[in-house]
Amino acid sequence: MTESKTLIHLENVFFAYPDGRAVLNNLQFDFYKNDKIGLMGANGTGKTTLFHVIMGLRKPDKGSITLFGKPVSKEKHFAKVRHRIGLLFQDADDQLFCPTVLEDVTFGPLNLGLSKKEATRIAKETLTSLGLAGYEERITHKLSGGEKRMVSLATVLAMKPEALLLDEPTTGLDDQTKARLTEVLQVLDISRIVISHDFDFLSKVTEGVYLMEDGKIITDADIHVHQHVHAHAHGAHRHEHK
């Protein structure tokens, strides 16, 4: 792959919590256009932190980050490119902060400088494409958990991101909503990294699964072993990564 198609490049990234616990430990990571990657790993291995470091929400202690071919280190660098990556938060309540669904979905496009009319059009299109037509005037805090998750996805997609970072998108969803989300993600042709503990889901919406362990991303040979482990009937339930 050529360098220009590298969307995200992390080099020697270290991140530790204030209590000294290292979460990202000399992490190397390259994410290319059209990659669809699943990311698994035990709790506390730094998957969410990785996403936050990529988005510039947390500053790594050491290491360099390159987004879309440009090195980013300060908030103003991140502010310029952040909208090109869509991060779906673990908790939809964090993401939906406007009173109504329409206001929430238009929030991103309006921040990008689109007119109200244009933003509303994009929002309605996005909602319709997710099967949420007619939700515009609904009050966000009154939505069900599944609806909240889908609307959160709409708020992210309305910004037309070039890459998606989905942080445990199936947590707390019933089978029906999970199936809908899976369907939507299968149709969407956007590069993505998906954190999940659900191997079945990952196998449907991504093309390869990486493992996160000891603050590093384990790729290549390990992945094949991993996929093999999960090839048996109870793959979705057994998650031993060691």
């Binding site: 909208h83 238009t106 929030f107 309006l110 921040n111 990008l112």
Partner: peptide, 15 residues
Amino acid sequence: QAMLCRGFKGKYYCL
């Protein structure tokens, strides 16, 4: 953080 991710620059819009 979620607001930053969606390009919030300190200006609010009302529909």
